[in-house]
């Protein structure tokens, strides 16, 4: 029992489960999943579908945070990626053809990769603090995206593009499969090769890693490249969902939600040990929380208040001061309890 309680994913999972429970109790239809035309529908399915962009971004963010870094530019990269893809499709004579969409997506992802590599260069080669290095792209990226779309919201009518976010494969949304593929790829790449453990080592103790002969520069760099690429995919999904490239709204505040998801998943912002499964749970928690807030009739614009409360709660729970105080109170309570027990036994004897 204590083993389960001590497991690092216990509290994140407990939070998600209780959140789901609240929803189901408040609204029985929440858990209802219906089959229509061979496709599943329902609130839970929506959460899986809608969480895809955040899932991708948060996976990349997990890797970057593990190296003691942070990537603020993911939202901007999403905007650029969507703008690139949609502009190519829009300017093509056959926006509806699969080939056009494939080319557009590949180019968009290549651009995202380059942007990620740029962040990685600033951090790992020039040695600029991650917050600052990625701030540059966060600031300039949306401007670039706006330039690509010519300042307007580019809309296209393209069935293959639409399919990415809204289509179904077998009985489940296609976007869900993208999430699963990304989780599996990152998981395999990190845990089946030594990338994961070396990333953690660089995050936990950079100097010891250097002295052990680890190529820390390449490892840090790879994390930012992965983050950029994943954000690029997220940008394509976002654009597909609305069939438009909105340089201002795409990925707006997503860096913050991604960081929140990573932290909720039990990965420390100080770097080091990370958990892909934890991040997955964190993302689902954030997404479910978002739906819950909507469900309770709060306008989506007001939801940040709730998220702010969650962030503050989580950081307080993680802070030393609270830990120490809790420990002291607990030991006092226990001491009181045992001493009163003793008194009882003494009285009894």
């Amino acid at each position: 029992m204590t083993k389960i309680l001590k497991h690092r994913l216990f509290w994140p999972a407990a939070a998600l489960v209780s959140l789901l429970a609240v929803n189901i109790i408040a609204n029985q239809s929440f858990a209802r999943i219906t089959m229509r035309d061979g496709q599943l529908y329902g609130a839970l399915i929506d959460i899986l579908r809608q969480s895809a962009p955040l899932m991708l971004v948060a996976l990349g963010m997990t890797l970057v945070i593990a190296t003691r870094g942070i990537d603020l530019s993911v939202g901007a990269i999403m905007a650029v990626s969507g703008a690139v893809a949609l502009t190519i499709i829009d300017s093509s004579p056959s926006p509806g053809s699969l080939g056009t969409v494939a080319v557009a997506v590949v180019v968009a992802l290549l651009v995202s990769l380059v942007l990620g590599a740029w962040n990685g260069f600033l951090v790992s080669v020039l040695g600029i603090q991650p917050i600052i290095a990625t701030l540059v792209l966060m600031l300039a990226g949306r401007g670039v995206a706006l330039l690509i779309t010519g300042g307007a919201i580019t809309t296209v009518n393209s069935a293959p593009l639409k399919f990415i976010a809204s289509g179904y494969l077998f009985i489940l949304p296609f976007a869900f499969f993208i999430s699963v593929a990304a989780i599996a790829t990152v998981g395999l790449l990190e845990r089946r090769t030594a990338l994961g453990v070396l990333t953690e080592a660089v995050g936990i103790n950079p100097e010891a890693s250097r002295l052990a002969g680890v190529r820390a520069r390449g490892i840090k760099w790879s994390a930012y490249v992965a983050s950029g690429l994943l954000a690029g995919i997220a940008g394509v999904i976002y654009a597909s969902n609305i069939s438009a490239a909105d340089a201002n709204a795409a990925g707006f505040l997503i860096e913050l939600y991604a960081i929140l998801a990573v932290v909720l998943g039990g990965t420390s912002l100080m770097g080091g040990k990370f958990s892909i499964a934890g991040t997955v749970i964190g993302v689902l928690t954030v997404q479910t929380l978002g739906s819950t807030i909507l469900f309770f009739g709060v306008p989506s614009a007001q939801s940040p208040v709730v998220f702010a409360a969650v962030v503050i709660l989580v950081v307080l729970l993680q802070s030393d001061l609270v830990h120490r105080t809790a420990k002291r109170v607990w030991s006092q309570v226990r001491a009181e309890f045992t001493s009163s027990n003793q008194q009882d036994t003494e009285v009894a004897s």
């Binding site: 030594a194 080592a201 103790n205 010891a208 002295l211 002969g213």
Partner: peptide
């Protein structure tokens, strides 16, 4: 503490860490 042990990794991971660094990330022990 500061230049040797990777405190948050396990004993096993610490022991094979030298080999792992030597082999690079692609060839996991």
């Amino acid at each position: 503490r500061d230049e040797g042990i990777i405190a948050d990794l396990t004993v096993a991971e610490n022991i094979v860490f030298g080999i792992q660094a030597q082999r690079g990330w692609t060839r996991r022990v």
